[in-house]
Amino acid sequence: MPHALHARLPKNFVLEERLERYADAIELTPERWRGRWAEACWRGIGAGAEAGRYREVRLDLGCGKGAFAVEAARREPDVLFVAMDAEPICVAYAAQRVCESGLPNVVVVPGTGMRIREFFSPGELARIYLNFPTPFPRKRDAHLRMASMERLMDFRDVLVTGGEVSFKTDSQPLFDFMLTQVPLAGYRIVRESRDARADFPDEPASEYEERLSAQGAKVLSLAVVPGPAPEHAEQTAELSLAAYLPQDLASLEEISYAPHGMQATVANLRNRAERLSSRSAGR
């Protein structure tokens, strides 16, 4: 979940009790299913599915409270959705949603994308969803981003041939940074939108996405697939997301929505641009 540390907890929320109550939906040792998720998690008959296994496996990386994964699973019962999040609170909420939905084709996994190759074998995932990953706007934290060349290179190892990475964000700087990462990792863009809610209104949405849209945020999205692997993947892009914001005062004043974690950066850039403009006017 993006920004999970800011999740509001209801009164009397006891994490351990929630995790135990909804344990049936949680897989605590995902590495044991590496290479056999489609068969090992089979619990029903999905439309068009081969008997005894799911048609394909998809990963919702950073699943938050699980709304997206559950709705996507409801629409495609022959696909197994693995909903992964590093925050125990999100794992508890997602597991509750899965149990209450009664859907057999969703499993919740505590974990981080840094361990994706430990949990899945080569060619095991048909799609990886990156819905609103934490931007980590500072250069010193860039290595933590899921939307990066380094992670795209990891994803290559577990995607099927032609497998897709689907990325959504409310952060224009992160989106523009991701556009630099796609070619560095040898991927190609198959779909791009700067207003995904308008362009693809029927796609499943998380609670977070719906809340952002209500606040006036535009949802930006990319779908990319691996092309030929680069011989030497090298990070050459500017890592600070502040570099992907406009630097002139007029453009900065037009920003009506500052992405999460960058409100102070936008304000600082505006103040700097105002000072420079005042100095120029005083000459």
Rank of each mutant, 00 (worst) to 15 (best):
L5A: 10
L19R: 09
R21A: 14
A23G: 04
A23W: 02
I26N: 02
T29H: 06
R32K: 15
E39D: 12
A40F: 09
G46S: 11
G46V: 03
A47H: 08
E50V: 14
A51V: 06
A51G: 06
G52H: 11
E56H: 09
V57G: 06
V57R: 01
L61W: 00
L61V: 04
L61Q: 04
G62N: 01
C63H: 02
K65T: 07
A72C: 03
R74F: 10
P77L: 07
P77Y: 00
V79Q: 06
V79Y: 00
A83M: 11
A86K: 14
C90K: 01
A92Q: 10
A95F: 02
Q96E: 15
Q96S: 06
V98T: 05
G102K: 04
V109I: 14
G111R: 03
G113E: 05
R115F: 13
R117W: 02
S121Q: 07
A126T: 08
Y129S: 04
F132V: 06
P135G: 11
P135A: 13
F136P: 01
P137M: 08
R140V: 13
R151S: 13
Q172Y: 08
P173Q: 03
D176N: 14
R188D: 02
V190Y: 06
R197G: 03
F200K: 01
E203R: 12
P204L: 14
A205Q: 12
S206I: 14
R211N: 11
L212Q: 04
L212W: 04
A214K: 15
V219R: 02
A229I: 10
Q235P: 09
E238G: 13
E238W: 00
L239Q: 15
A242H: 01
S251L: 05
S251I: 09
P259D: 10
H260G: 12
T265A: 06
N268Q: 11
A273F: 07
E274W: 02
R279E: 15
R283V: 15
